[in-house]
Design a protein around this nucleic acid. Structure first.
Lengths: 139, 139
DNA sequence: CTGGCTGCAAATCTTTTGCATCCTG
DNA sequence: CAGGATGCAAAAGATTTGCAGCCAG
């Protein structure tokens, strides 16, 4: 289940060149690209690739759970090939998003669950990345 | 600093009827409304209120930190008058978003911080709310 | 072959902006 | 009374959709 070919099959989708290109681009990619990022990166080598197909592919892969969708950026949707539950570090200044693969256990007291049956959690840490932090002047 | 009038002043903004209406609607509102939600709710009683003004007002209030902006919904921006740091419960099915005011301490091991200087964190808990959970059939 | 997939362009939806007028401070 | 705020409509982005032709299974 590591390579794009198998991921396509697993999702019950036809293995078209466009989809394989999208999957190859996403494979191991930790940049949390938007649909446009994917399109721009691929259209150089695949001149006939269309925006609609990128969106269709990303949506199909998201629906089958083959890739994940991030809700971190209010401007646009971002996609994440890493479907393992994980968390994120977000730079307040440059908006860079970095994965945290470490398992973080978050306890929610039963009296705060408001009747929800909780199946997972996602933590976003906000701060300055090393680059932006060092550029800030001491206040 | 509890009422809309004072919030407007605090933000250095003129107290126009439109802004006071937006602030009054948001005051104590825990429904995390989108700009359209705000517009629809207010346009009934304020027929001349325009979409642009709602957006301008929400943006201005967000920039001054008078209200907060949620990044939970990939479809649209949502706003939250509650500026205290807090967390959220999200129903996977009906998408309802519920506040958790309880302070949750999340530890991030130093070796996972990737050079970030962390200033805050936000936890999203996913699951089924009481209504959706009871409607699910046992698999 | 056949149904799913693609590319294109147009449509839709959310959010922003230009501008003349209005009104708060 | 001046500058910020409003309303309108148009623009700008992001995403979706209709449709005719194409190609993977």
């Amino acid at each position: 289940m590591k390579n794009p070919q198998k991921k396509c099959l697993a999702a019950g989708m036809k293995r078209t060149p466009q989809r394989l290109a999208v999957l190859a681009y996403l494979d191991g990619n930790t940049s949390h690209p938007s649909a446009e990022d994917v399109y721009r990166a691929l259209s150089k080598r695949n001149p006939t690739l269309s925006f609609a197909t990128v969106y269709n592919t990303l949506n199909a892969l998201t629906e089958t759970g083959t890739i994940g969708e991030l809700t971190i950026d209010p401007e646009r949707r971002r996609f994440d090939p890493n479907t393992m539950p994980h968390h994120h570090l977000i730079c307040i200044q440059c908006k860079k998003i970095v994965d945290i693969m470490k398992d973080i256990t978050v306890e929610l007291p039963a009296d705060s669950a408001k009747g929800f049956s909780i199946s997972g959690s996602h933590v976003e840490f906000y701060g300055y990345c090393s680059r932006c932090g060092s550029k800030r002047r001491p206040q």
